[in-house]
Amino acid sequence: MAGLLLSSSDSGRRANGYAILHLNLFRKEPLVAAIGDIVRFESVGMRYRLGVEVLHDISFSLAAGSFHFLTGPSGAGKSSLMRLMYLAHRPSCGSISVFGRDVSTVPRVELAALRRRIGVVFQDFRLLDHLTALDNVALPLRIAGAKEGQIRDHVAELLRWVGLEEQSDAKPTTLSGGEQQRVAIARAVISRPQILLADEPTGNVDGEIAIRLMYLLEELNKIGTTVVVATHNEALLERFSHPRIRIENGALIEHGHETAFDPDAATI
């Protein structure tokens, strides 16, 4: 068990309501061992069952430690592309490599292990309503077989980090949209994913909370997490200057690159 990704520090400063922390890694090695493509799509097409192709001839790659916006109008195929990236769907053609593994040849039992290295913030959060905030955040660790004592400590710390320590026993239905979003983020990062995918994470929150969220994602990116944020929020895109992957009508029309992640800078 790799241990929790983040730990808070008393000296951490708070900004915009979120705890902006010194991000100390429990282990010293960086998240990404070597610079390289962590995700690669080659001529990928996708269709749902026997329907029309919603994505066609998509080719791009993401460098480890990069931060990308996935943009495009509603219905362009952003969520479908995200589904392919978080291994929820098979491509109808082409090939997808994640962590250097061609997902079409990875045995089913190993797919679960690959998914544990990918954190996902779903558009509608997809929290489990019958579980408390603490249990929702603990889910990836329990699935990974972590010990209960460790889980409680780590989850409590992460909830404190996202400013929800007081709501740890609250059910998602009693939380506001912003609070649910933070629980979803905490769940996505608790197991220290190498890739963090956020599908329209600002869709259900106001502008200020959206900006706070972006700061949070940038903090995660600074310690080496590859981040992809699907959004059509133009204000957000203008404010944060990360490269864009733009798709329209299921086709890739723009793929901006940025400097690859430097693992030496991962420990802050």
């Binding site: 978080y86 291994l87 929820a88 089913r108 039992v109 679960a112 292990a113 998914r115 544990r116 996902v120 779903f122 997809r126 489990l128 889910l139 990836p140 699935i143 990974a144 769940r187 197991s191």
Partner: peptide
């Protein structure tokens, strides 16, 4: 959700 979080069958 469990499946996508990495739960084995």
């Amino acid at each position: 959700v469990l499946h996508l979080i990495g739960a084995k069958d």
